[in-house]
Design a protein around this nucleic acid. Structure first.
Lengths: 106, 106
DNA sequence: CGAATTCATAACTAGCAGGTTATGAAAAGA
DNA sequence: TCTTTTCATAACCTGCTAGTTATGAATTCG
């Protein structure tokens, strides 16, 4: 399984997406904190975190009895590459270029 | 369900990804042609195409008894937006900039 | 017309992914 | 020390999803 495939399967699940999004927005969170708003049980959260970790999307930091998880956005790289390849190589490029040029004007 | 969510769920399946990738690379193809190399039955292919169509990822063109499907890469836009938002807004931008600058040097 | 091709849909099946509860280890408090 | 908290893992359950076969409509070919 390629890296991009792994990312698609990991983020293909609604609960995992939601967990990743929270970590991306709120920063480092414990399993306990994640579980509180996840809508599923703690073991379910742990299992999802394991899968996200397997895809490199999150990182675990153990501190005493707590495990702090944080998003690793650079792991999305292969997804960007996939989109660039199958999606719309040129269009994206020019969209970015337009955006960058308008920013550089300011 | 948001557009990005719809895309993640559609492309979360290996067979659908493979179908979309073929259409993106090879251009317009009939259900028959897709089925020949899909590894699953024709009804399965039709079902997947229906889901991809629902997400806007493919377009159908009926011609006699054949239905020609083609990839609609611009439908990946919301996925790009999602990555930009949750992923790594700045890093991606600068990666693109680096790439663009090196291209402009040539 | 009669046969063959193409495709979509219906109806059904099975495997697995995502959920649960139970449990125990490790750490922190009282 | 005894209790509580936090987390991971094991074991199990279940519903959904991706697969199948069957079928028929529409089209094309001979």
């Amino acid at each position: 399984m390629t890296l991009a495939e792994n990312l698609f399967e990991s983020l293909g699940d609604r609960t995992r997406r939601s967990i990743f999004e929270r970590l991306a927005v709120e920063g480092e969170l414990t399993v306990h904190a994640l579980t509180a708003k996840a809508g599923v049980s703690q073991p379910a959260v742990s299992k999802h975190l394991g899968i996200l970790k397997g895809a490199g999307l999150v990182r675990a930091r153990r501190d005493g009895r707590e495990t702090h998880y944080s998003a690793q956005p650079q792991a999305l790289g292969p997804l960007v590459d996939w989109i660039g390849f199958y999606g719309s190589f040129w269009r994206e490029k020019f969209d970015r270029l337009d955006e960058l040029l308008s920013r550089m004007d300011q």
